[in-house]
Design a protein around this nucleic acid. Structure first.
Lengths: 210, 210
DNA sequence: TGTACATCAGTGAACGCGCGTTCACTGATGTAC
DNA sequence: TGTACATCAGTGAACGCGCGTTCACTGATGTAC
């Protein structure tokens, strides 16, 4: 289904290549989510996108690079979503809560992402160059959230007893850890628990200057 | 190395079988830690333990069952360690802190375990029967820690605003999530952060009756 | 204590399968004149 | 506007490899008498 297009002739070579790349990325994202990084074969991805494996290698250096591209897009999307909701809050606690809720909503909409990312981390941890690339993506994500929470603290006169970046790292880890529980209990409702602990932990390591 | 024994003849059939099983479990545990669940082949495990793959199948129904046995032993060990340190504490906060420190110490001694367990969770999540078996192990672990923290609360007149079991689940998730960060940064020191957030979160969802 | 048969833990080899990557090739698009 | 050659995105098939599981077999231990 969703053949690339009916009238190939209309596109220039460059346009067509971008189209192919986008088709592959979209399909790869879906199959990685459904079957995991190792579980989704390049054959299936190419097939379902309407190409052959060679098309993948014409657009990406390897399966790792393909995943890296998917992951990069995903991170960008997530960061944008959180930034939007956080900065409308009236005080620090409710801003914190808004970020927590946004994260929960995202993770409930795409429950496969946390395990998928961890699977790829484990894979990357045994390949030095790849590990560094994934780490760089992860740090950019941490930086983005750190900037966000610092801005939130500044606006509402709150100071941190623990470095904000560490708080971000910790609460992110909490979210990831809880999301992984769903591997064993797919229907578990973890959102309230996350929100509760996220807020408790964040407020527990901050002081209001008021 | 470590051939099963030089004088095979001294052991009865049952003793020898137990010996073989123990040899395999010990080696499997080590290789799973070093290479991951999928990365450690039965061939290598059998080989390094001094047997052939057939010996594995004579003692375990499958690779999954072998891992399940390793995992079961591991969980039991961890629970025992935490119980011991927690019940000596003078007040609730320091008991909480002692549990956090014990968890950090364990996870630093065996940094490969968190990723390993998650890899197996992901594997099990796609195999219904296995998923249930792993879930049962996990729940027993949660129960044990819940009993521990309830006892701690009882002794020190503390009540929970959030069900203790959920607090255990949440703080466990925090620990697991942080441990996974080490996949990307093997040398990161996460212990202090964990302790800080663990205590903040736990105290944040409790009330002292004093 | 000794002999004859039964049991079964562990062997060794084969089976069956999937997958990432490579590569010579093709045919449509691009370029030069 | 048209022709001849160059480029290169994507094809299709082959390569190379690893791995969990199965199974007929063996030889040491166990059992019956």
């Amino acid at each position: 289904m969703a053949k690339p297009s009916v009238r190939r002739a209309r596109l220039t070579r460059d346009e067509r290549k971008l189209q192919t790349r986008a088709d592959l990325l979209r399909t790869a994202r879906r199959l990685f989510e459904e079957r995991g990084f190792h579980g989704a074969s390049l054959e299936d991805i190419a097939d379902e996108a309407g190409y052959t494996k060679g098309a993948v290698y014409s657009n990406f250096a390897s399966k790792d690079e393909l995943f890296l591209a998917v992951l990069g897009e995903h991170i960008e999307r997530r960061v944008r979503a959180s930034v939007e909701v956080a900065l409308e809050a009236a005080d620090f606690a409710s801003g914190t809560r808004a970020v927590a809720r946004s994260a929960v909503a995202e993770s409930e909409r795409e429950p496969a992402w946390a395990p998928l990312v961890v699977e790829f981390w484990a894979h990357a941890s045994r390949r030095e160059e790849l590990r560094r690339a994934v780490l760089a993506l992860h740090e950019r994500q941490l930086d983005a959230f750190t900037g966000l929470i610092e801005e939130l603290a500044r606006r509402h006169d709150v100071t941190f007893r623990v470095a904000p970046r560490e708080v971000v790292r910790g609460t992110g880890a909490l979210g990831r850890g809880l999301a992984l529980e769903r591997l064993l209990e797919p229907d578990a409702a973890l959102g309230d628990l996350f929100e509760e602990l996220f807020v408790a932990a964040t407020l527990g390591v901050t002081e209001s200057a008021r």
